[in-house]
Amino acid sequence: MLNDSELTNLRNRFKKDAEFLMQTTTSGDEDEKSQEEKDAKPASRFDRHTVFWIVASVAVTYYSDFFHNILENDDIKGWWFNVGLILLAISLSLVMFCIVYLDWYKGIQHYDQEYPAVPPITTAAFIAASCSLNIALWPVWSFFTPLILFTQFMGVVMLTVMCG
């Protein structure tokens, strides 16, 4: 077993480690305060970046004749398109649940802590929807399809940022 001097050394080492942990914990509290201050002062929702993506989305919608192609083009792969729309609806409904119900109605701003399953499910549904829609619309716009859909996605995200 351990003799008295070894026990004393071990106790002193644990005491130093505990003091070090207490010092890092108090500095962590300062970081939390600065994070709270950041949360208290919201960033501007209307800036050049937001305006750029919304204008780009509108321009892509206009110049690619987006809605006309979606509604009337026979080259669209129907099964993939329907799966993509269902997954996109799931993703957008979860986003609206977080923004409208949790944030606006309930006042929960850190909903990922209250409902930890929502962000991964939303992300997975959106990624699957993106893949499905790219497959479905590839015959219409070819290699421009990912660019068009990404621009549309960013426009929708920026609109939700402005609203949320």
Rank of each mutant, 00 (worst) to 15 (best):
L2G: 02
N3L: 11
S5A: 15
N12D: 13
R13D: 10
K15N: 06
K15P: 00
K16G: 00
E19H: 09
L21N: 08
M22I: 14
M22C: 09
Q23W: 04
S27F: 06
D29G: 08
D31T: 10
K33W: 07
K33R: 11
S34K: 07
S34L: 05
Q35G: 04
E36Y: 09
K38R: 13
A40C: 06
H49F: 15
I54V: 14
V55C: 10
V55K: 10
V58Q: 09
F66V: 03
F66Y: 10
F67E: 03
F67V: 11
I70L: 09
I70W: 01
I70K: 00
L71G: 13
L71Q: 13
E72R: 12
D74G: 15
D74E: 14
D75Q: 15
I76V: 15
K77E: 15
F81A: 07
L85H: 04
A89Y: 05
V95T: 06
V95C: 03
V95D: 09
V95H: 02
C98L: 04
I99V: 08
I99R: 07
V100W: 11
V100C: 03
D103A: 10
D103S: 08
G107I: 07
Q109R: 14
Q109P: 03
H110D: 07
H110Q: 06
Y111P: 02
Q113S: 05
E114F: 12
P116F: 02
A117Q: 12
A117H: 08
P120F: 09
T123K: 09
T123A: 12
A124L: 15
C131E: 04
S132I: 01
L133P: 00
L133I: 02
L133M: 06
N134P: 00
N134D: 03
A136W: 02
A136M: 07
A136R: 04
A136P: 09
S142H: 14
F143N: 07
L147H: 13
I148E: 00
L149Q: 02
Q152I: 13
M154E: 02
V157H: 00
T160K: 01
V161L: 06
M162T: 11
G164S: 12
G164E: 05
